[in-house]
Structures are given as C-alpha cells and as structure tokens.
C-alpha cells in the first residue's frame, strides 16, 4: 500500500462506517417566519466518526449546530444522542449528556485566564455549590487540586502552556479556537461539534489543531466539523455532508462528494 492509499484508508476509517451512530439528526426543519432556514435535514455521526459539514454561507450549517445543541428549537424533527431523543433537553443538559460545541466566533471567558477557562468547564465541582463552598471546604480544595492537574494535562496536550496564565481576551484568534477546544474537552464529551475551527487561523496552528483532533478521535471522541477550508477538512474527516439552501445535497466519502456535480455547482464554483 503506498503512502497516499494508506492515508486515504486511515481517513476513510474516520467515517467509522458501520459503527452505531452517536448523534442522529432526523428530518430537522426550521422556519423563521416565512423563511425556511432548514428543510428536512437528516445526518448522523457514527461513534468514533469524524464527519465534515460544508456548504456556502447561509446554507444553514450553523443554524443546524444551534438546533443540535439546543440553542435554537427546531420547527420539526428529532435529535438523538446515543439513541435517546434530546429534544426536551436544554443546551447545558445536552452538554452534560456528552454533546458539546464550539462557536464560529470564539466565545472565550475573556476576563478569566486560559487555566481558569478550562477549570470552569470541569463538571460536578462541589465548589460551584454555595453550601459546599462554606461547609465542605476540604472537598472543594481536593477537587480544585484534581481539576488543576486535569487542566495541566489539557494545557500540555493543546500546547497552551506559554499562554496559560494570560487573560483569554489577550489570545489570538487561533489560540482562542484551541482554548475553546480545550474547554469542551474538559467536559469529557462523547461528541464535539466544531464550528469553523480553522477560520482565521494560521497554517501552522491549523496543522496543530488537526493533529489534536485526530488524536482525540483516536481516543474515541466523535466529531462533526463545519469548515470552509476544504484542504484541511479533507485531511481530517472520513465523511462529508454538503448543505445548500437549508437542505442536504450530498453526503459520503470526501473525494466522491467533492466530485459531485451539484456540490461543484453550489459550493465549489465549478460546472454543474
């Protein structure tokens, strides 16, 4: 097997075809008044899969992310996480259930340091309860020490050590993207939805982010990634879904999808 074939085989495996879906989006529609933002959209992310979601601006990708994670209610359709519907769950309950997201424009906690941003995301902290804070100080202290150790691991993993004590507001756009990835990692997720993780990021940092995502995927975390940088995305994902005007127009292996005439016409600017 030559290097290119080997690479393609590895990437195809990230589609995790045959694995049971960790995330299922079933027939989601969303109307804003008379405007139909999403029309009967279905897709799935297999357990251990790495799926890309592309489409022109305004195709409805970020709206779909917001619906999946509970920030916007759909007009119709169902979202399932590990087979169970999560439609009635709030955004924070979905995150606790293991489905987390990043945002197109990073939403760092700007007045907190990088370490504090990561600490904030650790689940089930006794010190976040006022009663425990004053009446179980020992438990709070122990959890803080354990949390700090976990944060150090994440800081090392994402190579954020140099900036770990800086307020998040002072980070560059790419560093904020890494910080958001780190923050969702602290929640111990099973599926991560990344909204344009490479936008505004320099090529060196893009390579860094890709490496980290692949490593996390190999540890069993599934990903659904919105991205316009097709070169970077096709290095990453095993399956690609394409949206246009609120509908899914193609899905499958990246090379096949990108060769699809409708995709070329709608997104790549080539002949139909």
């Amino acid at each position: 097997m030559n290097a290119i074939t080997h690479h393609n085989a590895i990437v195809a495996d990230r589609g995790a075809s045959g694995a049971p879906p960790v995330l299922e989006v079933e027939r989601i529609s969303k109307h804003f008044g008379g405007f139909c933002a999403l029309n009967d959209v279905s897709l799935s992310v297999p357990a251990g899969g790495l799926v890309g979601l592309i489409g022109p601006n305004g195709a409805g990708k970020s709206t779909l992310f917001s619906i999946i994670t509970g920030f916007i209610a759909p007009s119709e359709g169902t979202i399932r996480l590990r087979g169970s519907p999560v439609d009635t769950l709030s955004p924070f309950a979905r995150a606790r259930a293991g489905m987390v997201r990043t945002f197109q424009v990073p939403r760092e906690f700007s007045h907190l340091s990088v370490r504090e941003n990561l600490m904030a995301a650790i689940p089930d902290q006794a010190g976040e309860h006022l009663f425990d804070l004053f009446f179980k100080p020992q438990q709070v202290r122990i959890q803080e020490e354990q949390g700090a150790a976990l944060v150090e691991e994440t800081v090392d993993f994402l190579k954020l050590k140099r900036i770990a004590d800086l307020p998040a507001v002072k980070l560059s756009g790419g560093q904020k993207k890494l910080l958001e990835l780190g923050r969702v990692l602290m929640t111990r997720p099973s599926v991560i939805l990344l909204d344009e993780p490479f936008s505004g990021v320099n090529p060196v940092l893009i390579a860094e982010i890709i490496d980290r995502i692949i490593e996390l995927n190999e540890r069993g975390i599934s990903f659904l990634v919105i991205e316009h940088d097709l070169e970077a995305l096709t290095r990453l994902v095993g399956r690609l879904t394409v949206m246009d005007y609120g509908t899914v127009i193609a899905e499958g292996a990246p090379q096949a999808v990108l060769a699809d005439a409708r995709v070329r016409a709608a997104y790549l600017g080539g002949p139909a």
């Binding site: 924070f92 995150a95 939403r107 007045h111 907190l112 600490m119 904030a120 006794a126 976040e128 804070l133």
Partner: peptide
C-alpha cells in the same frame, strides 16, 4: 471560588457557559 469562576464566566458569555454544561 469555583462558584465565582462560573459567575464571572456568565458575565462574560452566558451561552458559552451553557455550552460547557452549566
């Protein structure tokens, strides 16, 4: 405290706080 960290996060961005399960 950890409680203070979360309320500071709420002040900065409430949606992002929900996104980390709080």
């Amino acid at each position: 405290s950890p409680f203070g960290r979360i309320i500071a996060a709420i002040r900065d961005n409430e949606e992002a706080v929900q996104a980390i399960g709080k």
